[in-house]
């Protein structure tokens, strides 16, 4: 398994303010498969994503990515793992305002402490081509539509050749048809790049593209169901 979540619990806050965000959550995803985590707001979906990405340490349990135990790592090691093995795709795309589309991708090389070489630039171009944004390479986020921004986010997440993609509500800010396009693209890239994708969503319309669907409620996985790729 590329990503394994094993009996993870997460308690946030102290004393009377304690909230159990995750309770004994276990799931896993293989390379090339898209796992959708469904559930209403406040169910703990984003907390799960934060734990899987090493942004929050679980209170108990283990998360392994590509065989590496995330929960045993220092903050610096987790940052490095995020740079090299994990691709994040956020709500509203979360692009850097000052950067062009091409630079959003090259940023991933820079934060690894390297100056982009020809190979990096070629990869960025290829990825922009795959998400059909070659013609927008020189545009900044404010010049792009919501769907385009989300596609840039997908290309950026794939830039560092990750093994896991963590996707947070990719369609929440898009209309239905644009949302469908984005999830379809995500499913396609998951297969093409052989990554294990964990997608948090509350939108039922996104499920047909998932290989696996799990439901969350009050921090617990309530039901796991096999999904199926939409043709």
């Amino acid at each position: 398994m590329t990503i394994t979540v094993d009996s993870v619990s997460l308690v946030l806050g102290d004393g009377d303010q304690k909230v159990t965000a995750l309770e004994s959550v276990s799931l896993s995803a293989n390379a090339g498969s898209l796992c959708a985590v469904m559930g209403p707001s406040g169910a703990g979906k984003s907390s799960l994503l934060a734990v899987c990405g090493g942004l929050l340490p679980p209170t108990t349990g283990r998360v392994t990515i590509d065989g590496q135990d995330l929960t045993a790592m220092t903050e610096n090691q987790r940052s490095r793992l995020r740079r090299e093995r994990i691709g994040f795709i956020f709500q509203q795309s979360n692009l850097v305002a000052a950067l062009t589309t091409m630079d959003q991708l090259l940023l991933m090389t820079h934060i690894s402490g390297r100056t982009p070489n020809r190979e990096n630039r070629d990869r960025a171009r290829d990825l922009l081509n795959e998400v059909d944004l070659s013609h927008r390479a020189g545009h900044r986020p404010h010049q792009l539509s919501g769907g385009e921004r989300q596609r840039v986010g997908i290309a950026r997440a794939l830039m560092s050749e990750p093994v896991v993609l963590l996707v947070d509500e990719p369609t929440s800010m898009l209309d239905q048809s644009r949302g469908r396009e984005v999830v379809e693209l995500l499913a396609k890239q998951t297969k093409q790049h052989g990554v294990a994708t964990l997608m948090v969503t509350h939108d039922q319309a996104n499920l047909p593209w998932a290989d696996q669907v799990v439901n969350m409620e009050d921090g617990c996985l309530t039901r796991a169901a096999a999904g199926g790729p939409q043709s």
Partner: peptide, 16 residues
């Protein structure tokens, strides 16, 4: 702040 949080989430170190 938001942007710095984003870049950290992408894997940038505080030192960078």
């Amino acid at each position: 702040t938001q942007e710095i949080g984003l870049i950290k989430a992408l894997g940038a170190s505080t030192g960078y």
